[in-house]
Design a protein around this nucleic acid. Sequence first.
DNA 1: CTGAAAGCGCTAACAA
DNA 2: TTGTTAGCGCTTTCAG
Lengths: 388, 388
Amino acid sequence: MVRARISDVAVAAGVSVTTVSLVLNDVESRISEETRNRVREAAATVGYAPSAVARGLRQQRMRTVGIISDQIATTPYAGRMLAGAQDVARDNGKLVILVDTGGMADIEQDAIRALASQQVDATIYAAMWHRVVEVPDGLPADTVFLDCRPRTPGFRSVVPDDRAGGVAATRELIAAGHRRIAFIDTELSPQRPIAADLRHAGYVEALSDAGIVPDAALHVHGEITAGGGRAATERLLDLPVEVRPTGLFCFNDRMAAGAYIAVHRRGLRIPQDISIIGYDDQQLVAAEQDPPLTTVALPHYAMGRWAMEVALGVRATAFSGALPRPGTREPEHGGDTSASGEEDANHQMECPVIRRDSVGPPPAQVAKPNRRRTSQHTERPPSAAPDR
Amino acid sequence: MVRARISDVAVAAGVSVTTVSLVLNDVESRISEETRNRVREAAATVGYAPSAVARGLRQQRMRTVGIISDQIATTPYAGRMLAGAQDVARDNGKLVILVDTGGMADIEQDAIRALASQQVDATIYAAMWHRVVEVPDGLPADTVFLDCRPRTPGFRSVVPDDRAGGVAATRELIAAGHRRIAFIDTELSPQRPIAADLRHAGYVEALSDAGIVPDAALHVHGEITAGGGRAATERLLDLPVEVRPTGLFCFNDRMAAGAYIAVHRRGLRIPQDISIIGYDDQQLVAAEQDPPLTTVALPHYAMGRWAMEVALGVRATAFSGALPRPGTREPEHGGDTSASGEEDANHQMECPVIRRDSVGPPPAQVAKPNRRRTSQHTERPPSAAPDR
DNA sequence: CTGAAAGCGCTAACAA
DNA sequence: TTGTTAGCGCTTTCAG
């Protein structure tokens, strides 16, 4: 069976192709209702499916968007990012062409050429974990970066606000009453994720805000695995009891899972003896720890949506006006309907705390009694010097 | 800057568009080497990028393949399937258009229409976990089903061989010396995954082959979560010691993680006191258990490859000849180069056992001494009562 | 060895 | 209210 063309419908309906085109695309209502029905029936009976290719060639707009990603496979939460982008694309009548480059530069170049060839309406460059990326040659100027920040400025991008997340995680522990809070960090290798620095900065900021001076002994490092988290935690638990942390902020859930193992091996309980907070809210690991892990969620779905909304021009950003994006408006969708107004072109998305059961108050016997507790009322730590 | 067309290249090179087309597509070498170079230079200087859309319209072949999937986001290992498909597509010069339907029938219909409209060369219908699916109306007859089996026959499909995987898992335990082996199954709900029945069938088969009669008390059920696995395991551990299982085959790694918790809570050790084997080889959970979990891997990457190879016709199957797939051969790739020959159209892919540290020999004291053990020397535990 | 020209299926300017 | 027709950019047949 061969594809029916628009002319077949025209013949079947006894009208011209123009009429068919007008009717099927709901352009103006200058065609009589009767003709419209006749055309629609004819289209149905001949089994007409319009060719997006021919339409695309004529209109120079394919209604597709390309997503170039390194490593779709390696990270389990990458899917949520794609889902967010996908959903927005669908709501705007676009199809997604996905290319996984495996991080290889030559494949990346092929992908860029192929997408240009396909005349995609927009391009998203996605990384599967928050990092700084080199902008590949030939990438369209209006490309939106998802979960990564381009080294070259002038592009729109969205990344998680890892610093604020680090603040939130640390505050969660502080609010529960902890003062000795450790940060279980990744190693200081050159490929260290920038999220590590940001989360650590947030940790320091939150401590300082609470008048707690960060203790270098409580900043430990390990591989980004459960094993790494476990080893680092063991070192922390070896500390003398009066300096040993009562709260652990782990770089991610994977390391937190290792911390659980170390803590349980010592016969300590979570959160009665020690509180733990993770990061990532990784599905199938955070919620299924014993007890369920309190953590900070990475807003993958929301970031995917943001990137696609910006790429399609349904959400304005600081660069939107400056960028050459002609003919992208969808007449039938009424243009910019997002009331969100203009946002920063480099967006940082909030990482919400997911409260489960691994954070509680610190054990009573560890809370060092405050020596000069004369008329001390509010949270004023003895260690905080009034001035320097 | 406006796209350069082929005519721009022709003008720049001082030749006709025909020549440019011939040169750039490496068609016959009837063009002189000198002209070829001139054309290539001209193309480079004007920054020519051919339009896949115009080419597609002319050739009626877009070199794209559509993948329709329910739920790309929900399962963490789905990515590997897409990666497999993606890699094969790339090696064959195809681009992947991915549509996530979220399992909604109306969106699915839109997706099918949209892909037909895009004139994709092939279509893959993927589920994110092994199940039987209804074939949606309008799906092309040559669609390949990935990780699911269509209810209507006549389509090509690939799924994991869960029965053989169940056999392999159970044999792993039997080979280590276990005789009392439990199967921690999912619940018997109507939406029960077919993998559960298959793995259980494999379990029964392996036991029978080893001359062990399956004990109904050792077939327990729970939710497909760590909590479900934990509860089921606790029931098993409550059994009198002489009937209590020494080996646990869990429906999946998630439930196995729950089994770990239950076992550790009882103060038992893995694998010294009890051996555990999972299923799925779920990244970031199986390998990071303490001890690392022995499990059966789901061959997602290989299934993704298989589906794409079959969809593109680079791998033959039983239905290949019968199906109407005209004009799909790639002249430049020399057609069918896969030496694998004709395969069954409904392929079952092997699930390999991943050996880690959660399976060992059963504890000696539990091994009921064989009554007629006349000349037995090794491993005779003193605590074992000669008879009951 | 190279070029002219038809046409893939559709939209949209212009005519009627 | 409807129809004619010129392309969109490319490949490919057929002539030179």
